[in-house]
Design a protein around this nucleic acid. Structure first.
Length: 491
RNA sequence: GGGCCCUUAGCUCAAUUGGCAGAGCAACUGACUCUUAAUCAGUAGGUUGAAGGUUCGAUUCCUUCAGGGCCCA
């Protein structure tokens, strides 16, 4: 009597028994007037006046005796113990009560009191079945640990693992802090197309779909960038969007095929302005979450109270390689990579090799909050070249707790130069490359109307959630991470 | 894509050198009006991820596949 089918059948039978007793196992509504946490907070007052309160939630543990029972009732605010006796609810109701079990959703009306052992509880006068649960809950003490089940059936994970619920509440708070910060500074929140006829704003492979009526190929966006900058041309001056981007690439603990990105653009600003925003926003999140500018990630403390370290990409890499990397030929860069056993595709350009070298030689050493600056122009086709430093652009990537969390530029606003950069990308990567930035004529037309000098910033919301919630993987901050299907996938 | 590891009852986990597949919780029956991982007495629950192979005998060894995890690319 305990394989899963039988456990479920027993619960279906109990549902039928409830119906025989005249109980609707799925009523439409229940009027509750307080929450479990509020009963704890207001206990002295409410127990003194013997206030009758009503709460609703899920039965988590049930301790039944012959004519009296205790159970823990959990709602989104917390847990409260309830005390059900024949004396208080009547014998008929107690018969119904005895049919209930862990997992069931119930509403109770009762009076706050303290048990002999001192636990704040509700003395139940009346209860209602609100939804019969037909599946057994995981073990009450050890919870649900299996990662596969936790990700596939997040609803069960959330029922039993309070720390998981807390992670997603932190994530929501992070997004709220970001919105407040930008709204207070006059940024306009906008929505731009997710379905795009051309994809751009990043180097990544897209998901492709098809629109039936227009009979055309469409792409799921890989970035919001080019649409948001059109809005800067349009005169909004300060815009942001928080939304999903989609990249048809690998999955690991820092990558999910769909992820949430903040992008913001500010006219008459540059990448230095964006650094200030990053420092301010991260500090505000730390204060909101921890009440302190010091955060701990995977056992290591980081202070967000100070200005972030500035680290030059080309200088740091040149130091590691022992030569000015901007002055090296493709062959010399390849030799440097080969020395370090880095495999490269045949068509790798100088910039791509430098990026590979950076990932291996420099990035692992980044621990403190750091802005990596001075990226090679060739791998930054949307960023403005740095004055007096040819080959290098005004771009930075913020690193928080060793993790790359975003990307920012002084935006390239010269339409002539932008066209050259697009063309250079296509030439570098080849016209067939899905990763090359596409030549977007309408975007160039917009630039021709004139875009003010602009600073732009993208921040990965999932990545910063990993850091601030101190989680090991992006899958732990995404409610429903991408998984292979349980049954054979459709192809 | 490559390497390593994991998959045993609904959940959390055991199982000696290859020798009868177990425990706790959950469930079921009974007792019980202050329990809180309730307690007490009893009952039941397994295609050991799937398919093949080696063997007298496979949860255990081998192969393939599926799903998951970690590391690397």
């Amino acid at each position: 009597m305990a394989d899963e089918k039988q456990l479920i059948k027993v619960r279906y039978d109990k549902r039928a028994m409830l119906e025989e007793l005249g109980v609707n196992p799925y009523p439409t509504k229940y009027d509750r007037d307080t929450m479990a946490a509020a009963v704890h907070e207001n206990f002295e007052e409410w127990s003194a006046e013997e206030r009758l309160v009503s709460i609703a939630g899920r039965l988590m543990t049930v301790r039944k005796m012959g004519k009296a029972s205790f159970a823990n009732l959990k709602d989104r605010s917390g847990t409260i113990q309830i005390y059900v006796t024949t004396d208080n609810v009547g014998a008929d109701a107690y018969t119904i009560w005895k049919r209930l079990e862990g997992g069931d959703l119930v509403g109770v009306r009762g009076i706050p009191f303290r048990t002999q052992k001192g636990e704040i509880s509700l003395q139940v006068r009346e209860f209602s079945v609100l939804a019969k649960s037909l599946r057994p809950l995981p073990e009450k003490w050890h919870g649900l640990k299996d990662k596969e089940t936790r990700y596939r059936q997040r609803y069960v994970d959330l029922i039993v693992n309070d720390d998981v619920r807390a992670v997603f509440e932190k994530r929501a708070l992070i997004v709220r802090v970001v919105r407040n910060y930008l709204d207070e500074r006059g940024f306009l929140e906008v929505e731009t197309p997710i379905l795009q006829p051309l994809y751009g704003g990043a180097s990544a492979r897209p998901f492709t779909t098809h629109h039936n009526t227009l009979d055309m190929k469409l792409f799921l966006r890989i970035a919001d960038e080019l649409y948001l900058k059109r809005l800067i041309v349009g005169g909004y001056e300060k815009v942001y969007e928080i939304g999903k981007d989609f990249r048809n690439e690998g999955m690991d603990k820092t990558h999910n095929p769909e992820f949430t990105q903040l992008e913001l653009y500010e006219a008459y600003a540059d990448y230095n302005t964006m650094m200030e925003h990053v420092e301010n926003i991260m500090r505000a999140i730390a204060m909101a979450l921890h009440g302190s500018t010091t955060i701990t990630f995977q056992g290591r403390e980081n202070d967000l109270g100070k200005p972030w370290t500035r680290l030059s990409f080309v200088d740091a890499l040149s130091e590691k390689v022992g030569k000015d990397v901007l002055a090296l030929s493709n062959d010399e860069l390849r030799a440097a990579a080969k020395e370090r056993h880095i495999e490269l595709p045949d068509e790798a350009s100088n910039g791509m090799i430098m990026a590979e070298l950076f990932d291996v030689l420099v990035e692992p050493g980044i621990q403190d909050p750091t802005f990596v600056l001075d990226f090679p122009k060739e791998i930054s086709p949307l960023a403005k070249e740095r004055q007096g430093r040819p080959g290098v652009v005004e771009r930075f990537e913020p690193y928080l707790c060793g993790m790359e969390i975003g990307n920012a530029f002084s935006e390239l606003n010269d339409p002539v130069e932008q066209r050259r950069r697009f063309e250079a990308q296509l030439e570098l990567r080849g016209p067939e490359s899905e990763e090359a930035q596409q030549l977007d004529e309408d975007y160039l037309r917009a630039l021709e109307y004139g875009m003010p000098p602009t600073g732009g910033l993208g921040i990965g919301i999932d990545r910063i959630s990993v850091v601030f919630a101190d989680q090991p993987s992006i899958r732990d901050v995404i409610l429903f991470p991408q998984m292979r299907p349980e049954t054979a996938p459709s192809k």
